[in-house]
Design a protein around this nucleic acid. Sequence first.
DNA 1: ATCTATGCCTGGTGGC
DNA 2: TGCCACCAGGCATAGA
Length: 274
Amino acid sequence: MPELPEVETVKNTLKNFLLGKKIKDIIINYDKIIKYDNKDFKNALIDQTFMDIDRYGKYLIFKFEKNSLVSHLRMEGKYFIRKNLADITKHDHIIFTLENDIYLTYHDVRKFGTMELTKKGEEFFLKSLSKLGPEINNPNIDINSIYQKIKTSSRPIKAVLLDQTIVAGLGNIYVDETLFLAKIHPNKQAKTISLKQLKIIINSAQEVINKAIKLGGTTIRSYQSSLGVDGRFQNELNVHTLAGKQCKRCNTLIKKIKVAGRGTYICPNCQEEE
DNA sequence: ATCTATGCCTGGTGGC
DNA sequence: TGCCACCAGGCATAGA
C-alpha cells in the first residue's frame, strides 16, 4: 500500500526517467481506472511531454504542457518502464508508448487505482484533491487547526489519522508506527486527545515519515518490486506486521487487533488504552 | 453535520 | 488436489 513515502519515491524515480519525454500513443486495456471519458484522455495526452511530476499526499500529479494527470495508486498500483511490448503483463492496464518505443505502464492487480485529467494549474479544483488536509510531512503544519477539527470527534484516533481530509499522506503502516512511537492506543477517542498529545502524535508521524522517505519507503506484501518502490523502511518497523514478536522497548509481545475495520498492530503494554 | 456501511477488485490462505 | 468462502484495504458514495 503506497503511502506518502512510497509515492514520493515513485515520483522521484519517474521524474528522473520521464521528464522531457513525449507520449506517442496510449493503450487502455482496462478503462475503469480512468475517470471520465477515455477519448478525451487520449486526445489530451498524446503528443504531450512530461514537464514535471509533483506529489500531494498519496497522489501523483504528472504535468504536461496544458494538462495534468492526477494518479492514485491505491493499494497495488505501480508504474513500470517496459523496454519491449513482450514484457507487458496481464495487469498492465494503461500503456503509454513513449519515444523510441519505450513503454510506461500502469500496473494494478486489484484495479483500484484511479487517473483523472484536469487543466494544468487546476489540479486542486478536483474533488479528490480539494478535500485533502495539510500534508503530514509539512514542517509548518498547523497542529492547532487539526486539534480544532478533531477535538469533538468520537472516532478512534487511528481513524482520524487515516482520514485524508484531516491530514494527508498517512496510511495503515505509518499510522501504526506513529501511534507506537507516541505511545497512544489506536482506539483512543480523538476527543480525549489533548493538544499536547496531538503534538506528540504529529511529531512522531513526521519522524516516521521523514525516515521512511530517506529509506525509500516500505516494501511489504509486495511480491513484485515496482519502479521506485524498493524501500528499506520495512527493516525499521516497530509494530506493523510484527504480531508475536517482542516490543523493542519493553519486550511485551506485539498484538494484532482490529481498529476502525483495519488490521492494527500495537504493543499492548506501551500503548495503554484509556 | 458526522459517522458508518458498502462496493470496487484479485490473489493468497485456510478449511474441507 | 480442487473447490470455495473469506480477507486485505483507500477512497467515493449512499445511507443512518
